[in-house]
């Protein structure tokens, strides 16, 4: 696996797992409007994961489904940050959202400058949706930045984005849930 494909899979893993985690708020977010907004962000993240897996799958001679759901838990390259199950803690959820969107912006920017035109094009497309996520994150940041719980959450979670070689038990549970369909119905597609 080239470094570039590895990087794409890494981002896709982050987006898939974070999309899954954010969707755990669907139906129970603090406000109906926020429920819709946050679920929509979750849906976008999973869409980004799919597009990135498809690109990587072509390079690797496999399929997006196999990459997303047929690997063992320890083969995923997702960040420790996105593995955490944060429901029902909204302060930590928003702290993660802010940290993630900032970090994600930097690497998507780098992909936009890629020599690979297809990858650069996909990154630009993803970035247009991420711009909305960033706006949403900043809006919440402005609202919560003076709250002690939020500040503590930022401090706690900030260092976790770059940790990629650890898989916490919560992730294994999520993996069980995420891959259940693929494991019970052979050949089920996304």
């Amino acid at each position: 696996m080239t470094d570039q494909v590895q990087k794409i899979v890494e981002i896709a893993d982050d987006e898939l797992v974070l999309g899954w985690r954010n969707s755990e708020w669907t139906g129970i977010a603090p406000l109906l409007e926020e429920d819709v907004a946050f679920s929509s962000i979750a849906q976008n993240e999973i869409g980004h994961a799919r597009a990135l897996y498809e690109l990587a799958a072509r390079e690797l001679g496999t399929t997006a489904d196999e990459l997303a759901f047929d690997r063992q838990p320890d083969e995923y390259r997702c960040s420790r940050l996105v593995q955490l199950r944060l429901v029902p803690d909204w302060a930590r959820t928003i702290a993660r959202h802010c940290i993630y969107e900032r970090a994600d912006q930097a690497r998507i920017e780098a992909l936009k400058r890629s020599d690979d035109a297809e990858l650069a094009g996909l990154a630009a497309k993803i970035d247009r949706e991420e711009a909305y996520h960033r706006m949403h994150a900043e809006m919440w940041f402005d609202r919560l930045e003076d709250e002690q719980r939020f500040k503590a959450a930022l401090e706690e979670l900030e260092p976790l984005f770059d940790v990629r070689d650890e898989h916490i038990p919560e992730f294994a549970e999520l993996w069980e849930e995420m891959t259940m369909v693929r494991r019970s119905v052979a050949g089920a597609t996304w």
């Binding site: 926020e34 907004a37 949403h136 809006m139 609202r143």
Partner: peptide
């Protein structure tokens, strides 16, 4: 329903 104009715009968009 939103706490301020900024949230209202984001939610309306959504």
């Amino acid at each position: 329903e939103a706490p301020n104009e900024e949230f209202a715009e984001a939610y309306a968009r959504e």
